[in-house]
Design a protein around this nucleic acid. Structure first.
Lengths: 138, 138
DNA sequence: AAAATATAATTGCATTATACAACTATTTTT
DNA sequence: AAAAATAGTTGTATAATGCAATTATATTTT
């Protein structure tokens, strides 16, 4: 019976990913590309995160995470802090410039979402928000 | 008030895309990669679709669509049919092999989604399906 | 304490997906 | 008939990614 719902979800998720990827790749809204946005957001909201933790968080190889962070560092969006207890490790802190960039990107994205959902009822938005969170959790 | 919902949606969409991309990139579930899956699905469910239409459908450059279809053709998943009325154009038909591959991939994906949503209520699934469709429409 | 192993991160290399620009072969418009 | 438009391909470049090898440092084992 809700086998049907699952099938819809399966397909619509693929479509969703394709469309969002398309939008955020082309334009790279607010300058920050897809991946960088989440990396920076995570740095901004968590303490003492290193390359490894980021890779795990996003299901990426450490090498990818390493390069992403090197890029953010180069742009001046994050500072690398050596771990005083472990000479191999380092973690990142977002800079003021990084905060600004994150805020700008967030705003641009929010605007886009807002426009897209302008005809949705308040209830639908709440539901969608809640279900997305539930889907992403764990 | 539901500014909050929009903010959640904005962030959770980014997270969702990242996680799904990660899953479907690594494993390429059921052999078909992310993009190929939707291309093949579209061919399977629409008549006389050419490269241009596919590119438009997915918000991609025609060159990208062209290469994707060339790859599917090479794998034997689609047949290229010359348009008898327009010597420039061609369209695609899914082959039996393509149908099989599509079905396998769909099954693998569905299984994944089913597992992920095994604790969801029937109502939540219905809602999520409906909201995703609404989000993707137009 | 020395040797072996494990870990955090980086770098080399290959692949995939993508866009843009130039091009070819047609078709349509003027 | 010439010019413009269109469908598609191909060359080139870039971004994101994974895997494998490597480096430097920590931890564990002997």
């Amino acid at each position: 019976m809700d086998e049907k719902a699952l099938e819809i979800i399966e397909l619509e998720l693929a479509v969703l990913v394709r469309h969002i990827t398309s939008i955020t790749t082309e334009k790279s809204i607010g300058k920050l590309e897809r991946s960088a946005y989440l990396f920076l957001h995570h740095i901004a909201t968590h303490d003492a995160v290193g390359v490894k933790a980021l890779a795990e968080e996003f299901g990426l190889d450490v090498s990818t995470a390493s390069r992403q962070m090197a890029a953010l560092e180069k742009k001046g969006y994050v500072l690398r802090m050596s771990d005083p207890l472990d000479g191999r490790a380092s973690s990142f802190e977002i800079t003021d410039l990084g905060k600004q960039e994150l805020a700008d990107t967030k705003e641009a994205r929010l605007e886009r979402v807002t426009k897209k959902l302008r005809n949705w009822s308040s209830e639908e938005r709440q539901q969608f928000a809640q279900l997305l969170q539930k889907f992403n959790s764990k």
